[in-house]
Design a protein around this nucleic acid. Structure first.
Length: 620
DNA sequence: CTTAGGG
DNA sequence: CCCTAAG
């Protein structure tokens, strides 16, 4: 199904900060990794501008908040930044000609853009900030869409950012692996709509192509080995970016996985943009232009953190297959914490979305493609078809929000997931649109598959098809109740991606940090079984999680004990709730004391830590 | 194959 | 996570 996959940097030029392999002690966490000045990704600029847009447009936009469609509200805030590309390789710093008609872009006055060097001489690049007006130009555009919805709960505001619809003139490049576009523009229309999701339904049909849709696609290392695009940002921005970067790399998973890539001999360029969206999540998808005689339909998925992801799916594959593929990558990114969504209200106060997001459905020509069994061809998704009306929807995944993210940190472990109440307070059905704006006409659907939670958090497998279309809308928050996990099977976001790769290319498995939920299950099991029966622990709690061996569990326990023993400030990675760490220590203490006894008794008494502690306390 | 520990 | 000695 997935004939080929490549991960490319949408905005080329940014080089991954290579985290060198070093002794463990030396490469632990890098809370902040400095970028070279010329390595700021264009997406960082977008991220910065997006945040800026959100903030600055707040007043003007909110004054018009009762307008049904936010389409034209911001017509006045159209700005254009043009950066004429330097045809001369050297002239990097001149030529930044910035047109700014309002304050939104003033900070950009120093933006300098160096465009692709090895492209057509008449190439030019421009970044436009545009308010809601479709731009039919045959240029790439990236749009940031913001919508705000107000609910009965006044404090719930939902802001969405979408960077989407990168389009470009059709590239007739013979070399299909090095599509360096010479002309690019970035448009950032800003929409505001008080009606939930309405903004996604209308007014965004500015994607018009003669011949399909093509994403802005720059190979990171082109055939000439030159950098393609570079951006320089003023110091203020740089600071901002650095901060974002620090956030990004606070999750050490990224660095590890990246640093591992070279030695794995993996072909794909897996690139992490340093930018974390300042507000809102950013994702986009588009269908790429196809090469002649290439039987595959090519899709690209964009986000800030993985600016572009590039997959190809044969036309003969089914819609369901496409969904799974997309979801697969969503999960892949999610697993690497490259794909995390936040929701904040416009004031910046946190209304954080602990949940992850999943790819919902496939939308074609405004209608959701419901029959997963149809092939892409049959559904009209063809390399020769109307690819410009294809989109994907993103839907929030409400499952398994660990305790640490829940405001109610005092809930018992078994109920430490989001509650109905919390769920009901969420925006009813936020959807991030992927793809052409006019593709979305279906009312948003927030679907939770009650029967198969694997849809959301489980590893994807052929026997676990993602059939979103068969799901039901869930107006009843009761349906969202999360059943406490019995084991860790459903607790980790583990893309199947890992399975097929590395099989023989490398020995070392990819790092898969334990989720809080997994830790919880592990602790639970160890509490009962003790620290010397890892095989039992495995079978009891991780029986169906084949990537967690009992050695893994033992190792994890080891690190947990260590983590619990050190000061919170010294801990790294996803913070484990103190409650869990306390249990770890208690169980550790208990079992190290009772192990000998256990042998004598021939039977391992399930741990009753509380009792034991009480007794100890009493004794003391 | 499991455990236990060091790397 | 890996590797390995030891049971």
């Amino acid at each position: 199904m997935l004939s080929k996959k490549r991960l490319n940097f949408g905005f080329s030029g940014y080089q991954i900060p290579v985290i060198p392999k070093a002794p463990r002690s030396a490469r632990k966490r890098r809370p902040c990794i400095k970028l070279d000045d010329d390595q700021i990704c264009a997406f960082e600029l977008l991220a910065a501008v997006a945040g800026k847009l959100l903030l600055e447009s707040e007043s003007s936009a909110s004054s018009n908040a009762d307008t049904p469609t936010g389409k034209d509200e911001l017509a006045g805030c159209r700005d254009t930044i043009k950066c004429e590309q330097m045809e001369d390789d050297k002239a990097l710093d001149q030529g930044s000609c910035v047109e700014s008609s309002n304050s939104l872009t003033k900070d950009w006055s120093e933006v300098k853009m160096e465009s692709c060097k090895d492209v057509n001489a008449d190439a030019k690049s421009q970044i436009k900030l545009e308010g809601g007006s479709p731009n039919p130009d045959d240029q790439r555009d990236i749009r940031i869409v913001e919508g705000t919805q107000k609910q009965l709960d006044d404090d719930i505001k939902h802001t969405e950012l979408t960077v989407a619809n990168v389009k470009a003139p059709i590239e007739k490049n013979v070399n299909n692996s090095a599509l360096i576009n010479s002309d690019s523009s970035v448009q950032l229309p800003l929409y505001r709509d008080p009606v939930p999701c309405a903004s996604f339904v209308k007014s965004r049909n500015n994607v018009k192509l003669d011949d399909g849709m093509k994403s802005f696609y720059c190979k990171r290392k082109n055939t000439h080995g030159n950098e393609s695009c570079r951006l320089e940002v003023p110091s203020k921005r740089r600071k901002f970016c650095d901060h974002s970067f620090a956030v990004a790399y606070d999750q050490e998973a990224s660095s590890e996985s990246i640093s591992n890539k070279p030695e794995k001999g993996i072909k794909e360029d897996i690139i992490t943009s340093p930018a974390v969206p300042p507000k809102g999540a950013v994702v986009s998808a588009s269908v790429r232009n196809h090469q002649k005689e290439d039987p595959n339909v090519k899709f690209s998925i964009k986000s800030f953190k993985v600016p572009e992801l590039y997959i190809e799916v044969p036309e003969t594959e089914t819609i369901g297959s496409l969904k799974r593929t997309v979801l697969f990558f969503d999960k892949w990114k999610s697993n690497k914490q490259l794909f995390f969504f936040y929701a904040e209200n416009s004031n910046g106060s946190s209304n954080s979305y602990p949940g992850k997001w999943i790819t919902g459905g496939v939308v074609l020509q405004g209608k959701k493609v419901r029959d997963d069994n149809r092939t892409l061809q049959q559904a009209g998704i063809s390399k020769n078809g109307n690819l410009d009306t294809l989109g994907f929807t993103l839907e929030p995944s409400f499952t398994k929000v660990p305790l640490s993210l829940s405001p109610k940190a005092d809930t018992p472990a078994s109920t430490s997931y989001i509650t109905d109440q919390e769920l009901s307070r969420r925006p009813p059905s936020p959807i991030l649109e992927l793809g052409p704006p006019n593709a979305l006409s279906d009312p948003p659907e927030t679907k939770l598959d009650k029967h198969d939670e694997s849809n959301h958090e489980l590893e994807m497998s052929p026997t676990n098809p993602i059939d979103q279309s068969a799901g039901e809308a869930v107006p009843d928050s009761k349906a969202l109740a999360i059943v406490p996990p019995v084991n860790a099977e459903a607790l980790a976001v583990v893309p199947v991606y890992h399975k097929n790769r590395h099989s023989e290319l490398s020995k070392r498995r990819t790092r898969r940090p334990f989720s809080i939920a997994e830790v919880e299950v592990l602790v639970e099991a160890v509490e009962q079984l003790g620290t010397g029966r890892w095989r039992d622990v495995k079978m009891r709690a991780f029986n169906n999680v084949d990537h967690r061996t009992y050695v893994d569990l033992k190792d994890k326990w080891k690190t947990l004990v260590h983590t619990a023993s050190i000061a919170p400030q010294q801990r790294r990675g996803e913070p484990v709730p103190q409650e869990l760490l306390d249990r770890v220590l208690a169980a550790h203490a208990y079992w190290s004391q009772h192990q000998a006894k256990q042998h004598a008794k021939q039977l391992a008494e399930p741990l009753k830590i509380v009792d034991a502690q009480v007794q100890n306390d009493v004794a003391a």
